[in-house]
Design a protein around this nucleic acid. Structure first.
Length: 562
RNA sequence: CCGCCUGUGGCGCAGCUGGAUAACGCAGCAGAUUCCGAUUCUGAAGAACGGAGGUUCGAAUCCUCUCAGGCGGGCCA
């Protein structure tokens, strides 16, 4: 929390608590246990800058009507040395506080001083957080769900670090297991098709164009050299050829989307290092496994799951969840992250309790793993849903989306809704350059401010540091509302971090743009007396700082001209 | 059958650690803006928050049941 906002709230809380203590001591109020009360920014401006519900919360303890309690509390409270200028009892017993002009002036001075650091806090105390997101199968191009996961994960990671966590981004590459076998088979068949007749692609193979392209490229280099050889050798050669290309492709496409990872973690390294095998041993040792019909099962029901599940198949091959357990063990134990956040599609929700169960069995604190489930995205064009299907190979890929939609819009749009809600991505709206498009609305506000400052400079007016007295001239409703909103940034970031929801940030900045426009339509900056002009210039500039801070957190551009 | 998620004005949604007239955008209606960028602003209209109970001084927010939609429950991942 911004020190200033925090201290202004704390001041009031303290004063009220002190008053309650005093009243009890002097017998003005009965002795009672005092629960914590809340101090909030009321939705309605008429209710002041802050409102507290202490009298409501304490009415039981004091056995008195809330409004009476409020009255007594206020009579005995000392608000000297606070920003409180005025207060009143309202409604059922709220106490509303109105802060002095000095508070508003100090907010602006604070932003001016911190600049691009404004909004950051040490709420997270530097704890180590690993955000894993996208982690698309390297067997083909990324689809639209990955686009949402990408924007969400990347922005969430930024939010976490702004809230004071040490944050890393990670992509988990499933470069082993069944998906890869299927990939190998598909490549093989496509390759053989180039030389033989009558080779069919089975239902469960990859039918995408990209597989055909890989096979052709491979054939151009190697010719029919691998047609007659051993199957395993052929498949291995094909995978060795195509997989790195795919991984590079993922890397490049995500970079285009402005996503950079600290780590690309390969599943295969878990197998090579023996971590997967070790996990099976550790699970066996934990006593939560048993054998049945030649398979090794995990007693998931002991951990609240409704069914046990298989760890190692009867054929001796571990199921997908084993490397996943090993992977998360690696994150939390081997690498010692305090928190692992996974961004997953909602279709994985059944899998989360199993993974957590296994981690618990291994003695890992499973609450360190938080999974953000996001609902599926549907693409909408001309009011019609475009169905995406990976199998048919006709899915809308991340790349096609980004060819059509500006990156800024895509990143903003995917963070417009909380992760856990179904989302229709409106292609027409995203490319629309008008105020119905929220990204443009925000960027426009920023460009407008830059333009004001430019214009004034062209006229020889230099923005300088406004004095406190000048800043206290900002007293209109629109100015106050704008400043209050600027003051709320730090809290908003913390709240977004707590709930893993960057959508709070896009909402915040949209509202900021609205508040700025309202201010702008009422208050002139240019052509007024110099002290007020300097104050308003500071307000404009601080608004620009905040918009820019937020947009850069979302990794969206803040253009000075549009 | 069981589990998770969602259900707020015509549409899209915020609010959901319980609190004061349920916020905002779009569409639609009526206006403003000779002036710092008209991709702007103002006003009116429009919802008792899927439904039914319950807890509470107070519930869109918590509990129970119920309806509707999405997604899961494979020795697939």
């Amino acid at each position: 929390m911004s020190k200033l906002v925090m201290s202004s709230k704390e001041q009031i809380k303290k004063a009220i608590k002190a008053s309650a203590e005093k009243c009890m001591k002097e017998g003005l109020l009965e002795q009672g246990e005092l629960n914590d009360f809340s101090i909030e920014v009321p939705a309605n401006k008429d209710h002041g800058d802050y409102a507290i519900n202490a009298a409501l919360v304490w009415s039981k303890a004091f056995r008195k009507a809330p409004r009476q309690i409020a009255e007594i509390l206020l009579e005995n409270a000392d608000f000297s040395n606070t920003y409180v200028e005025k207060y009143e009892i309202a409604g059922p017993g709220f106490i509303n506080f109105f802060l002095s002009a000095a508070y508003y002036a100090d907010i602006l001075a604070d932003i001016d001083e911190k600049k691009d650091e404004y909004g950051k806090s040490d709420f997270g105390e530097g704890k180590k957080v690993l955000v894993e997101f996208v982690s698309a199968n390297p067997t083909g191009p990324m689809h639209i769900g990955n686009a949402r996961g990408g924007a969400l994960g990347d922005c969430l990671a930024s939010v976490m670090s702004a809230a004071g966590y040490y944050t890393e981004r990670e992509f988990y590459i499933n470069d082993a297991g069944n998906q890869i076998n299927k990939f190998a088979l598909s490549l093989e068949l496509r390759y053989l098709q180039l030389y033989k007749e009558g080779i069919e692609m089975p239902e469960d193979s990859y039918h995408g164009e990209d597989i055909i392209a890989h096979a052709k490229a491979f054939a151009e280099i190697n010719g029919d050299k691998y047609v007659e050889c051993d199957e395993a050798e052929r498949r291995q050669a094909l995978v060795k050829f195509a997989l790195p290309k795919n991984i590079q492709g993922l890397h490049d496409d995500l970079l285009k989307y402005r996503i950079e990872y600290n780590t690309w973690f390969k599943e295969s390294t878990l197998h090579e290092s023996g971590e997967t095998t070790r996990i099976i041993e550790l699970l066996k040792k934990s006593g939560y496994t048993y054998e049945q019909e030649d398979a090794l099962w995990f007693k998931a029901t002991e951990f609240g799951c409704d069914k046990d599940f298989v760890l190692v198949r009867a054929n001796g091959v571990p199921t997908y969840i084993v490397p996943d357990i090993a992977y998360h063990y690696n994150k939390l134990v081997t690498r010692g992250f305090d928190k692992a956040i996974d961004i997953l599609g909602a279709d994985h929700h059944g899998y989360v309790p199993r993974l957590k169960g296994a981690l618990t069995a291994l003695g890992v604190d499973a609450s360190k793993l938080d999974v953000v489930l996001m609902q599926m995205v549907r693409l909408v064009r001309d009011g019609e849903v475009i169905k995406a299907s990976k199998r048919s190979g006709k899915a809308i890929t991340l790349v096609t989306l980004l060819d059509e939609v500006p990156i800024d819009a895509a990143r903003f749009f995917f963070n417009l809704r909380e992760p856990n809600s179904h989302f229709d991505f409106d292609l027409d709206l995203a490319v629309n350059e008008s105020n119905s498009n929220p990204v443009y609305y925000v960027q426009y506000a920023y460009a407008r401010i830059c333009s004001i400052i430019r214009n004034l400079e062209a006229e020889g007016v230099k923005r300088r540091e406004a004095t406190k007295a000048e800043l206290e001239l900002l007293t209109t409703d629109e100015e106050r509302a704008l400043i209050s909103h600027l003051a709320a940034l730090t809290d908003e970031i913390i709240s977004a971090a707590k709930s893993y929801d960057p959508a709070k940030i896009t909402h915040y900045v949209s509202e900021l743009a609205t508040k700025f426009h309202k201010f702008y339509s009422v208050c002139r900056v240019k052509g007024i007396e110099e002290p007020l002009m300097q104050a308003r210039l500071t307000l404009c500039n601080d608004t620009a700082i905040v918009i820019k801070n937020v947009l850069s957190m979302l990794n969206i551009t803040a253009p000075e001209k549009m």
